[in-house]
């Protein structure tokens, strides 16, 4: 594969005697959306702060397109656009002046580019209002706008959908996917809305207590189990469960009002259907219950959501 957009090499952070981040190593490539997942206090924000150079790296190194954030800060950081935690802006300035402010800090951002970005995030109507009159959602959009101003190759978003309404969340998700797919940007997203991650990310890195537990693609992550929960909607649930227990010798059958639920592998589904039909039971619907990322996540992190 080509050079990673972001490369973390044995990154460790110590504050006093405490080790906050232990030996993180992973790569993020151009064109992918990488989800950074972990309970509160696991070290997500600390890691993000080290990637953007707000915090020093105790041991190890971070490279942005091959440039070390430690030793070639300016060369490395110019590739990055970011929102770290909440998008805090100068409240007494207009949204537009906030963007002008950041545009002046990097070469090559024209007035046209500012207008373009404002349009992209859908703030055209309110851009000349003072930021103190913005809703959280509008601030989030303005935050995205400042991160995109200089057309970065790496976009880092901490809780990007925080404060957005459902339509806004959908829009933000589409933005992020589009930026990754069409413009080849590497996007790092952290979010506490795990269901969001599932829809947005290509790969997910799970961090707990400062350690990386694993990096998996979203599909792997959700479908790694061989057993699936499958619901069969039938007219006689009671009889059905008896049939299944007798003919297929399955033990853990859950019986609902209109269905039975089984924990089986894919290949067993036709066998169940056959057995039900032979016993003259009407089969209306078969539904596979996919585990959501949230359930998976709690499983992996041992159900402790606040660390």
């Amino acid at each position: 594969m080509n050079q990673p957009a972001v490369k973390l090499e044995h990154v460790t952070k110590q504050i006093g005697r405490k080790t906050i981040i232990k030996d993180l190593t992973f790569d993020i490539y151009s064109g992918e959306v990488f989800g950074f997942l972990g309970p509160n206090g696991a070290g997500k924000t600390t890691t993000i702060r080290m990637i953007v150079g707000l915090m020093k790296i105790s041991q190890g190194n971070i490279f942005i397109h091959g440039k070390s954030i430690k030793t070639e800060f300016k060369q490395a950081i110019k590739h990055i656009g970011a929102i770290v935690e909440n998008p805090e802006m100068y409240k007494y300035l207009s949204g537009y002046n906030n963007l002008v402010h950041y545009a002046r800090m990097i070469n090559g951002v024209s007035k046209e580019r500012i207008d373009e970005v404002v349009k992209l995030v859908g703030l055209s109507d309110r851009i000349h209002d003072k930021v103190k009159r913005y809703s959280l959602g509008m601030r989030q959009r303005l935050g995205l706008a400042q991160a995109l101003l200089h057309s970065p190759d790496v976009l880092i978003l901490d809780e990007p959908t925080n404060g957005l309404d459902p339509a806004g969340i959908r829009e933000m998700r589409q933005h992020i996917r589009k930026l990754a797919q069409e413009e080849g940007i590497a996007v790092i997203v952290s979010s506490h809305l795990l269901s969001e991650m599932e829809l947005m990310c290509d790969r997910i890195g799970i961090i707990q207590k400062g350690k990386l537990i694993g990096v998996q693609t979203v599909n792997e992550f959700i479908h790694s189990d061989t057993n699936q929960q499958v619901q069969f909607y039938v007219d006689k649930p009671k009889k059905s469960s008896q049939v299944i227990i007798d003919s297929l010798s399955l033990s853990n059958v859950i019986q609902g009002d209109t269905y039975i639920e089984l924990s089986i592998i894919k290949e067993q589904i036709p066998l169940v259907c056959e057995a039900l039909i032979k016993a003259d039971i009407k089969l209306y619907n078969i539904k596979t219950l996919e585990k959501t990322l949230e359930e998976k996540f709690l499983e992996v992190t041992g159900g402790v959501s606040v660390g």
Partner: peptide, 12 residues
């Protein structure tokens, strides 16, 4: 205000 986080992540 927390604006420092956006101020110091520029090539400056």
């Amino acid at each position: 205000w927390g604006t420092i986080k956006l101020l110091l992540i520029r090539p400056v």
